[in-house]
Nucleic acid binder design. Structure first.
Lengths: 127, 127
DNA sequence: CGGTATCCCTCTCGATACTG
DNA sequence: CAGTATCGAGAGGGATACCG
């Protein structure tokens, strides 16, 4: 937050359709993406490890999520041509920088779970 | 938020289906929710102001998003029975606390837009 | 103005089957 | 093991019409 002059940041209205925040959030906000990045933050993992770690994810969605993250340059996929084949997934340097803001959001969730749940119950009783 | 004893924080595996982070992210990760909260962070707004501010949102989705946020206790809805009726939306105290982690994510998006886009193009050329 | 109700279509996602 | 391919159900969300 020091940028005095000429910040190379996006200058448009942050709420218009083409806004980068929105494009990124479309990926980052994805429920599976957040979980995959979170797990890889604890260390590299194989495909099947990820699948076991994330309750309820289908093979299709895990593949799709990993491909998207790889395409964004946030995850690196390494194939070891053994028999049977072994594939390792790891966060790239850029991917690791995403951990902090994601962690902030997770902490917010945990801290506010109580009030949010209470509010929901109150709302549902009144409506 | 003083509870010294028996902190009501969630203790389970952050990646299981019932995890609060996941429940919150289902809401927060929603593309419209983030935008609405972001705008309300700049000040209270009427329904039609929000609608004009968010390019591409339909009336239905704006209503749905606002109702969800109201139910979560993050947004307060105030009806002024004038003619024609005026409705103001404002962040609650809890809603305002969400601004910071959201802002962190937005900054991340802006800072990494370049590398992500470049990575995508490289990936697409190679596949 | 600020909604609700309805229709309808798309597009995601899960389930299943098959492969290098 | 780590995928790809295909199909079908269903939720998400837009368009439209109407209301207090």
């Amino acid at each position: 937050m020091v940028t005095t002059q000429s910040e190379p940041v996006y200058r448009g209205n942050p709420y218009e359709a083409s806004c980068p925040t929105r494009r990124i959030l479309d990926r980052v906000g994805d429920r599976w993406t957040v979980l995959v990045v979170g797990i890889l933050g604890h260390g590299d993992a194989r495909f099947s490890e990820l699948r076991r770690s994330i309750e309820g994810i289908s093979q299709k969605m895990l593949t799709q999520t990993l491909r998207g993250l790889e395409r964004d340059g946030l995850v690196r996929r390494t194939v070891y041509p053994e028999v049977p084949v072994r594939v390792e997934y790891a966060l790239t340097a850029a991917g690791r920088t995403l951990l902090e803001p994601l962690r902030a959001l997770q902490e917010w969730s945990i801290e506010h779970l109580g009030v949010v749940s209470a509010s929901q119950e109150a709302y549902d009783r009144a409506h």
